[in-house]
Computed example of a mutant assay.
Amino acid sequence: MDIIYLIGAGLAEVGLVFCMKRASGFKQLFWTVGTLFFATVSLTGLSFAMKTLDAGVAYSIWVSFGSIGALVVGSLVYGEKLNTKQMICVALIIVAVIGLKIF
C-alpha cells in the first residue's frame, strides 16, 4: 500500500508543479488554490507512505516523482527542451530510486 500512496503523492506533486507554473507567483487565484490543493494531497500521501516505509526512502522516491514529473510536464506542456545529458540524468534518477526500493 505504501507504493500506492507514493505514486498518488508523486502524481499530485506533478499537479502541484503544473498549477504553480500557471499561478504566476500566486497572482492567479484558481491556480493558487490548485497549487495548495495538490500540495496538501501530495504531502498527505507522503505522510501515509511513511507509516510503513523509512522516511529517507519514501522522501527520495517522492522527490524523484516530482522531479521527473516536472521535467515531463515542462517538456510536453510548456515546450521546454531536454538535451541528451539531461535525459541520461533522468535515467540515473530512475535507476537510483529503483535501487533504493530494492535494497
Rank of each mutant, 00 (worst) to 15 (best):
M1S: 14
A96G: 14
L29M: 12
V90W: 02
M50D: 07
Y59K: 03
W62T: 00
E80H: 11
L6P: 06
V63P: 02
K101Y: 05
I4S: 04
L100K: 08
A39D: 03
I93E: 04
G8C: 07
Y5N: 05
A23E: 10
V57G: 04
I3C: 10
G69H: 00
M1T: 08
S64C: 15
L16Y: 05
V95L: 14
T52F: 12
K27M: 13
G79A: 03
E13L: 09
A55L: 11
T40C: 12
L16P: 00
E13I: 01
I4W: 12
K101R: 11
G10T: 04
I4V: 10
V73S: 09
F26Q: 09
L82N: 15
C19R: 00
I98N: 08
L53F: 13
V73C: 08
F48T: 06
C19L: 04
S67F: 14
G74Q: 01
V57F: 03
K81C: 14
S42F: 01
R22F: 10
M87E: 13
L100T: 07
F65I: 12
I88M: 02
G8H: 01
L92I: 13
G34R: 01
M87L: 15
W62I: 02
V17T: 08
Y5L: 01
L71I: 10
V14R: 00
V90H: 05
G99Y: 02
L6H: 06
I98C: 15
V77I: 10
V14Q: 06
K85T: 07
A39L: 06
T32K: 04
V73Q: 09
T40D: 10
V97D: 03
A39T: 07
G45K: 04
I93V: 15
V72I: 14
K51R: 11
N83F: 01
Y5I: 09
I3K: 06
Y59P: 07
L53M: 13
T84H: 13
S67R: 12
I93F: 13
F103S: 07
L53T: 02
A23Q: 07
K27E: 15
S67N: 14
S67K: 10
A49S: 11
A12Q: 01
S67L: 15
K85C: 12
T35E: 12
L76N: 04
L6S: 00
I7D: 03
T35N: 09
S64T: 12
F26P: 01
I94H: 05
V14A: 05
V72A: 05
A91K: 02
V73K: 00
V57C: 09
S42A: 05
T44P: 02
A96R: 09
L43Q: 11
S60C: 11
V63T: 09
L43Y: 07
L29N: 10
D2E: 15
